[in-house]
Every structure is written in structure tokens, then in C-alpha cells.
């Protein structure tokens, strides 16, 4: 990402912030301090008479508003008994927070996730389809093989809406994608999931040795959600497993007391 692009996305994020923060406030349980800060920043940047302030002004406004505020993550805990929905702006985030490799996408009531969509190379559809069995076998043999990805669910879909077959890899997980990107790629290499990706257009030829190019592929093909919903929001897979373990232990205890 070049400096110019960075400036541009900063600007977009800021111009979009006020409306978005309001929408988020209406839908989620409470406005976060972050949303309020962003709102203030947007207000600062809207100098009288400037329909579209230059990017450098906005950048100053952003620094002024955020430099004294630690960036708190979007609300990461909520009342799991209260279903929640979150409408997300087009960029995929409310306020630009720079991660190591690009913008950080927020945690939503449906936790973190990504949706990678890419066109399949001609004639490779069957190869991708067959790989489903390979993953099934790998997980069967080593149940914790995908554990580092901290997944809830994976969905692999092939679809064709008239422009040839496309592959969609959708994952819902409990970690911020940017934070553990290298770990994920290392696991993809180890488990051979990358053999699916080599059948996709745009996958770098030197993927085995060029980690930055692989990371760029994922960033380029990520399609952020604009709505996410959780029936039991912000609950991690570990918490679900813990609760089920406690339930199991409790019924065992009650059995013992008969």
C-alpha cells in the first residue's frame, strides 16, 4: 500500500464516519467511546464552506482527535442473551485503524471473519471440489489441525453467476485476521490448503516463498460484510466449549448424586 492510497482511504473513512457511527449506535447495544471520538473528528474536519476538505486537513483532524486516545477495539463483549446486528460501512470498518498489513476489520456480533472470493482458473473446478475430502480427512486424523485459526465455522462454496465458476472461502473465527496472518498462511502451507488457492486466478506464482504476495492476495480478495448478526453475540468458540464442558460436568455431578 503506497502512501497515496493510505491518505485516500483515511479520507474515505473519515467522510463516512459520522453517518456510520450513528447507524452503529442505533443497532448495537451502545455507542462505543471510539465511535464518539470518530464523530468528533468528523465534525472537526468539516470546516465551514468546505464541501470536501483536502486530505491533509483531514489527516490533521484525525491525529488531533485520536493521538490522545488509545485505540480501543470495537465492543468485544456484549450481553450474549441479547441478539445483536451490526451494519458495517462499505470499507468494512468504522474508523481506519492501521494494522500491520492494512485496515483492521472490527469484531462484530458474529465475531471476526473473512469472505475470500476469487475466480477459478479454467478447468480447475473439480480439483477444488475434491480438495474438500482432503480437508475432511486431515481434520478426521488430527482434529486440532486447524486450531490455530480459532475458527467457529468454514464454508467453501463454488458458484457461477454467468461469468464462470468462482470460489468463496468464508470463515468465522475469534481473532483479528491481520494479527495472525502469517500463522494462518503457515498453516495453509502445512495442511496444503494452498493447493486450493493455486487453482484461483490472481494467486501469486511464487507463493511458496513470497509471504507478502500471499498476504496481498488475501487482502485483495477479501469482501467485507455490510451486515453481521449474532443470535448470541460476541461469544468465542472457546467460551461455547467451556459452557458445554460445564454443562457436561454438571450433569455428571447430578448423576453421581442420585
Amino acid at each position: 500500500m503506497s502512501q497515496d492510497q493510505f491518505g485516500e482511504s483515511t479520507r474515505r473513512a473519515f467522510l463516512g464516519t459520522a453517518a456510520v457511527a450513528t447507524a452503529a449506535t442505533a443497532v448495537t447495544l451502545a455507542a462505543s467511546p471510539t465511535a464518539e471520538t470518530a464523530l468528533a473528528a468528523a465534525a472537526v474536519s468539516e470546516a465551514p464552506g468546505t464541501g470536501s476538505p483536502p486530505a491533509n486537513q483531514i489527516k490533521v483532524a484525525q491525529l488531533a482527535a485520536t493521538s490522545n486516545q488509545p485505540i480501543k477495539p470495537e465492543p468485544t463483549t456484549g450481553d450474549w442473551t441479547k441478539p445483536a446486528a451490526m451494519a458495517i460501512p462499505k470499507e468494512g470498518y468504522f474508523k481506519l485503524e492501521q494494522g500491520r498489513y492494512g485496515p483492521i476489520y472490527p469484531r462484530t456480533p458474529a465475531n471476526y471473519g473473512f469472505t475470500i472470493i476469487a475466480k477459478i482458473k479454467p478447468g480447475r473446478e473439480q480439483a477444488i471440489r475434491e480438495y474438500g475430502k482432503t480437508i475432511e480427512k486431515a481434520v478426521g486424523e488430527t482434529p486440532d489441525v486447524l486450531a490455530p485459526l480459532r475458527l467457529h465455522y468454514l464454508r467453501w462454496v463454488i458458484f457461477d453467476v454467468g461469468s464462470g465458476p468462482h470460489f468463496m472461502y468464508q470463515g468465522i473465527f475469534d481473532t483479528d485476521f491481520d494479527k495472525y496472518l502469517e500463522d494462518a498462511v503457515a498453516l495453509f502451507l502445512k495442511t496444503g490448503i494452498t493447493t486450493v488457492f493455486v487453482n484461483l486466478e490472481g494467486w501469486p506464482d511464487d507463493w511458496k516463498t513470497n509471504l507478502p504476495a500471499v498476504i496481498q492476495f488475501f487482502r485483495d480478495h477479501q469482501r467485507p460484510s455490510f451486515l453481521e448478526y449474532g443470535e448470541y453475540p460476541y461469544v468465542t468458540a472457546d467460551e461455547v466449549k467451556k459452557a458445554l464442558r460445564v454443562k457436561g460436568a454438571l450433569s455428571a455431578m447430578l448423576d453421581q448424586m442420585q
Partner: peptide
């Protein structure tokens, strides 16, 4: 040279958590 080195540490403040009293300003 890689992106993060070209940007320099101050520009990476969000990545590094250099907020509040720790900010490059």
C-alpha cells in the same frame, strides 16, 4: 526496502500501540 521500514516507526504508531502519552507527537 519493505513498506514498514520505508514508513518509519512514527508512521506505524497505530500498529505499535503508540497512543496517548506514547504518541510520536
Amino acid at each position: 526496502f519493505p513498506e514498514e521500514f520505508r514508513q518509519g516507526m512514527p508512521a506505524r504508531w497505530q500498529v505499535l500501540g503508540d497512543t496517548g502519552a506514547n504518541h510520536p507527537d
